[in-house]
């Protein structure tokens, strides 16, 4: 390897094309290794405004970087990469790429609110962490996890039928997460259930798996529920399209 200092450089700044021909010269492989510049070349001033439209982050622009939040942070005490002070700064200047580097830990805020309690400028950092986590999710930066897939299957069934069918939730969850439909523990569970549950109940479950029963009059109720959820999402989006200059406190 030509550049032995590579270990000193963030891996996302090193670019190498497997196949590249420049001016007729084949420079495939490490011959074309380029190091992207380290400097910040712009601010995205709309970004802070966007985050501010999420509930909890309204005061993010007040931050003066004293670091009280980070110093008081429960999570920081365990993991010094968890730095609310830094993310608030990135938010205010719109340094989105740097923020995304930490997308896998921002959501680990435990909402103890020590930061919000100590903040001398009433920035409410806990709310900002929540807002950032929501933004990451909304923009698709948060990967689907087993638990989020389970949640979706669960709520999906509630929307559809007004109830959940345990066995259907499990089977669909296994399918969507590419797991075998009959893991040993599941077989064991089923065996024990068959041993202890009344036969009528088991038949009931089996039938429900096939016929997908709905809660009585769920049609209208489900419609109201879906309408409510839609309204809530729209309200949040309305806030998000707030004009640039309408934010004088």
């Amino acid at each position: 390897m030509a550049i032995h200092e590579k270990s000193l450089i963030d891996s996302d700044r090193i670019k190498t094309s497997d196949n590249l021909v420049l001016d007729g010269v084949d420079v495939s492989g490490h011959w074309n290794t380029m190091i992207l510049p380290r400097y910040l070349s712009n601010y995205d001033t709309d970004f802070g405004r966007k985050i501010q439209t999420f509930t909890g982050a309204e005061n993010v622009h007040r931050c003066w970087q004293c670091g009280s939040c980070t110093n008081s942070c429960t999570v920081y005490a365990q993991n010094t990469d968890f730095n609310p002070r830094y993310w608030i700064y990135l938010t205010n200047l719109g340094l989105k790429d740097d923020l995304l580097k930490d997308k896998d830990i921002i959501w680990t805020c435990v909402s103890c609110n020590k930061c919000t309690n100590i903040c001398p400028k009433d920035v409410r950092p806990e709310g900002v962490m929540k807002a950032l986590a929501h933004w990451l999710e909304e923009e698709g930066h948060t990967p689907h996890t087993k638990s989020s897939i389970f949640d979706e299957e669960f709520t999906g069934q509630v929307y559809e039928t007004g109830r959940i069918e345990d066995s259907r939730v499990m089977i669909n969850f296994f399918r969507k997460t590419n797991q075998p439909l009959t893991p040993p523990w599941f077989i064991e569970l089923t065996k024990r259930m068959m041993k202890h549950l009344p036969v009528g109940f088991l038949m009931h479950m089996g039938l429900h798996l096939v016929f997908k029963p709905r809660t009585k009059s769920w049609g209208r109720t489900g419609q109201v529920l879906r309408e409510y959820v839609r309204e809530q999402k729209e309200a949040a989006h309305k806030a998000r399209t707030m004009p640039k200059e309408a934010v004088h406190v």
């Binding site: 380290r38 400097y39 910040l40 070349s41 712009n42 601010y43 970087q65 830094y86 700064y89 990135l90 340094l95 740097d98």
Partner: peptide
């Protein structure tokens, strides 16, 4: 920018 510990070149 001493808070992000990075050089800046901003228009």
């Amino acid at each position: 920018d001493t808070l992000v510990k990075r050089p800046i070149v901003i228009p």
